[in-house]
Each structure stands twice: as structure tokens, then as C-alpha cells.
Amino acid sequence: MLERLELEAFLMLAEELHFGRTAERLHVTTARISQTIKKLERQIGTPLFERNSRHVGLTEAGQRLRDDLRPAYEQIEASLEKATNAARGVRNVLQVGFLGAAAGQLIVQAAQLFGRRHPGWRAQPRELQIVDGLRRLRAGDVDLLVVSLPHNEPDMVTGPVLFSETRVLGVSSRHPLARRDSVSLEDLTAVRMLQVAEAFPDYWRADRTPALTPEGRSVAPGPQFETLQEALALIDAGEGAFVMGAQVSRFYARPGVVYVPFSDAPPLEWVPTWLVTNTAPRIQAFNQAAQDITTRVSLDISR
């Protein structure tokens, strides 16, 4: 039977694909995480991660275990949270999902303001992965989700833009483009563009991983990824590049990855979205809190 640390360490490492960041999030040492994973692999009888000095990745057995364990773990966490909220006298909880650290920074501050304005209510920030954000919103795991445009889902409503950021190209530090002060959309022909797994709609994928430049030149596709950490590992290894927001230079600094700003690409804009069928007043109340936070506090999304 898995101990709690084994379960959390495995799922966190499966998400981060980095022992140091996993240790930081769980408030233990990197050595403790390494020992815990090795113990788990001995217990199961097969490697769960492939690791070397530059890369950590899930094995096929690790992927299966992650997919089997995550739903059960999330259900347990949700039950514990409900019990905790009941003990604290919090009657209602608004689950607010976010993708990326800058959105998370905003959501945490907005949640605090929302709680002060609406006694008996609590907004719970929930970090989601890029490939399952829309699915989790549709499944009811979160009530609200902060996403980047474009966003055009018929069953969802979008609120006003909360913040925007410059687009940058994440590229290996060994690539010639890494030595440039800026890049253009035409420069995408010089790299392979990493592909987001199929969970995201075609219009979003076309915006972030275009097949053609504005002048109609072909852009070569690269490997697929499911999480930002997977994308960064692939970029570090020279397997491709990806278009991201400038927040990565602050929150996701990595020695082998350089973030070069675009000179001719529009900024990335972030908005709240929720299901058309969810007409609860608390949605608008939280959106108002988020808007008020953005007018009062700088998110400091890039250095």
C-alpha cells in the first residue's frame, strides 16, 4: 500500500519532471524524493522514470500509474478539503483553475479579496495542466478557469482580459536564435515547433504552433508534450521550440532554455472562462475581485 509521501512524490514528479522542484513543492530534500521514488520502483518492480543528467521522463509503466492514480488522489484531496472547510465554517467553495504561474499569482490574490468580500465563501486555487484544463472545467472539477486567448468554445463564456504579456520563443540555449535580441514569426522556419497534445482545440494549436508563417512558409512540427515541464525538457534537449508568454522568464528559468521576445507577434491575453450553464452569482463576484486586483497590484510576470 502506498504511503502518502510516496503517492504525492510520484504524482508531483510526474508533473514537474524535476526532482528539485518536486522537493521544493513538498518541502522535503531532493534526496528524500529520490529515495522515495526508488523505494516505490522497487515495490512495484519496474522503473517509473527515465532519468539522466539532463532529462527526467516517465516510462510507459509510469504513465499508466500516473493515469490510474491521479483521479483517485484528486477525489481524496477533494473530500479532505470539504471536511476541512466544514470544520472552519466555510459553507461554499468556488474552485478556480489556472494554467501557469502568473495566472496562479493573480488567482491567489483574487481569492483572498473574494473571501473578505463574501463571508462564508472561499475561492480555492487549483493548478491544472495545459492538456486537461478544458476537460476538468467541463467535468465540474473547477467552476472557473483562467486561460489564454484564443478561446472559442460554444459551451463556455469568457470574461474580460485580466492581464497580457509579450510572446516569447522558448528555444535551446545552443540554437543560433538564442543569441538574438528578438525574433519574428518568419524565424519559426528555423526551428521545429513542439506540439501540444490533442486535447486542445485546433484554433488554439494553430495560434501557438502554426504550420505556416505569415508569408506562407512551412514550419516543421516537433514532438508532442502534455505539460510545460515536458516542453521545457524537450527544448533544453534541442528537440524543438515553443511560443510562450514572457512570464516563463521569471517563473520557469532554466539554464538550457532561452526566451527570445517576438518583434511582430501580438501579446498573449488571459481571460476567465466558465460553462454557459453555470449562472451562479459567485462567478461574477470572483471575476470582479480578479479585475480589482489587476488594477491595484502589478503581477510582475516578467523581469
Rank of each mutant, 00 (worst) to 15 (best):
Q109W: 13
T30S: 08
F200A: 10
T189G: 00
L2C: 04
S79R: 15
S53N: 13
G97H: 01
D68I: 09
Q288R: 15
G240R: 05
R64H: 12
Q35N: 15
R250K: 14
S34W: 08
A246R: 04
A9E: 02
G100A: 05
G104I: 06
T59N: 06
R217F: 06
A86S: 11
D187Y: 00
E77V: 12
L234A: 10
Q229E: 14
V260A: 04
D292P: 04
V90P: 01
R32W: 05
Y203R: 05
L162I: 05
V183Y: 00
E16Y: 08
R116M: 13
R88P: 04
A102G: 08
E81T: 13
P150R: 10
D264M: 12
G170I: 02
S34H: 13
D68W: 09
P125L: 11
D202C: 04
V161C: 04
G62R: 02
H55G: 02
L268V: 14
R254H: 15
L11F: 06
A289Y: 08
H55N: 13
V297I: 15
R217C: 05
A178R: 03
E230M: 08
M193E: 00
Y73K: 09
L11R: 03
L188G: 00
L13H: 02
E230G: 07
G238D: 07
L185K: 05
Q224A: 14
G57N: 09
I44F: 06
G140C: 11
L212T: 07
L7K: 05
N85I: 01
E74D: 12
G89M: 03
R174T: 12
T158L: 08
G240M: 05
L177A: 01
E198V: 08
H18W: 06
P125A: 10
S53C: 07
E186N: 10
V219L: 02
R250V: 12
S249M: 14
E77W: 11
Q195Y: 01
A87Y: 10
I76W: 15
R70I: 14
N52P: 04
Q291C: 15
I283K: 10
P201M: 01
D155V: 07
H55P: 02
V219Y: 01
P261G: 11
H175Y: 03
G57Q: 10
K38H: 11
F98H: 11
A199I: 00
A220N: 05
A233Y: 00
G89Q: 08
T279F: 09
T166M: 07
Q288S: 13
L94W: 03
R167F: 02
G133F: 04
P261A: 11
V171Q: 01
Q229K: 10
R136I: 07
Q291W: 11
T166H: 10
Y259K: 08
E3T: 14
V183H: 00
V90G: 02
V28W: 03
Q95Y: 13
I44G: 00
G20K: 11
E50P: 01
G62E: 03
Q63F: 04
T209Q: 07
G238C: 10
A246K: 02
P176Y: 03
Q112K: 15
R135T: 14
W274R: 09
I33K: 01
L128D: 06
L58P: 00
A206W: 02
R167L: 06
R282V: 14
G20L: 08
E3M: 05
A246V: 09
P261E: 09
F262W: 09
S249F: 03
M156N: 08
A197I: 05
N278I: 08
A211P: 02
F286K: 09
L2Y: 12
K38L: 11
T29N: 05
A101S: 15
